[in-house]
């Protein structure tokens, strides 16, 4: 063991502790306390307000809705794509994986802008579809439009998270199953999917958290006009009208609680099974 005096070595940790404490942990602590802070002391008033306000309940509902729909859709598409990728030739697969990696970096404001170009009111694809008579009008700035964008950015992330698990599926298992008389569907039902299950649930949880935390893309697209948790929180601390940081803190805690609940559910659902990949 190499030596230096422990106190001296620990002094090297101090600057990092100050910055990380001050700009990551302290804000979280402040939010956790602020949520219970009311004019004359402490209380649950902000949570009561959230629970009784149709506006905030709608924000929670819509956040959950868009997260569940886009994560489920994203997971299904990503699973199919991973299946396709494992069957594609080595070279094509490498190109497609590199491309997936690239699209997973395309997020936030640039992504919103690209979708305006493609599917906005005068978007190239919107016009093409309208001309072909496939759609009457398409509104990107609506619930349906947001679902499409969310699903779009969930798919590459899902593919990158699931690929290692698919790589862990042994070719011999399929051969053994087939020797024992199992068809393709039997293989997936009794071997493939059960083996993938922990990874699928883990990926789903990350996708859900990703969707619930999303702010930049929606804000760039519809500003404050679509009622979501992150949009409400940001509006309460940076809007033009009167600010309510304590209510924002309470909503933040609700968000964190939802994320925690999802993680715990996932751990329960996959308990006793090892994660592969």
């Amino acid at each position: 063991m190499w030596r230096s005096r422990p106190p001296l070595a620990l002094a090297w940790l101090l600057p990092f502790a100050l910055i990380f404490g001050g700009f990551q942990l302290a804000p979280l602590g402040y939010v956790a306390l602020g949520a219970f802070r009311v004019d004359d002391g402490w209380g649950l008033d902000h949570f009561r307000e959230i629970a009784t306000s149709p506006f905030y309940r709608q924000a929670i509902g819509r956040s959950l809705e868009i997260a569940l729909v886009s994560s489920a859709a994203g997971l299904i598409v990503a699973t199919l794509a991973c299946y396709g990728l494992t069957r594609a030739g080595g070279r094509i697969r490498r190109v497609l994986i590199a491309f997936t990696n690239m699209t997973s970096n395309f997020a936030g404001v640039p992504l919103a802008f690209a979708f305006i170009i493609l599917l906005g009111a005068n978007g190239t694809l919107t016009l093409a579809l309208e001309r072909l008579g496939l759609v009457d009008t398409f509104n990107l700035y609506s619930r349906g439009g947001l679902m499409i964008i969310y699903t779009w950015f969930q798919v590459p992330l899902g593919i990158l998270l699931l690929l290692p698990a698919f790589a862990g599926l042994r070719r011999e298992w399929r051969e053994a199953a087939s020797l024992l008389g199992a068809g393709r569907l039997d293989y997936w039902r009794h071997i493939g999917l059960p083996v993938l299950w922990p990874s699928l649930m883990g990926t789903l949880t990350i996708l859900l958290a990703n969707a619930i935390g999303t702010y930049a893309t929606v804000f760039a697209l519809v500003g404050n006009n679509y009622n979501l948790l992150t949009i409400r929180i940001a509006n309460l601390v940076s809007g033009d009208l009167f600010l309510q940081p304590q209510l924002a803190s309470a909503l933040s805690l609700v968000t964190v609680a939802l994320l925690t609940l999802m993680t715990l559910t996932q751990q329960r659902l996959t308990r006793g099974r090892s994660t592969c990949g």
């Binding site: 990380f20 979280l28 939010v31 602020g34 935390g213 929180i233 601390v237 940081p245 994320l259």
Partner: peptide, 28 residues
Amino acid sequence: GLARWMNVLVLTPFAVPPVVTSVGLLQL
């Protein structure tokens, strides 16, 4: 021991949405 702590700490920027951290930062 520090390594164990760090493994948990490095997750916080991923686990907590930036909007939530901003609420605290703006007040502090």
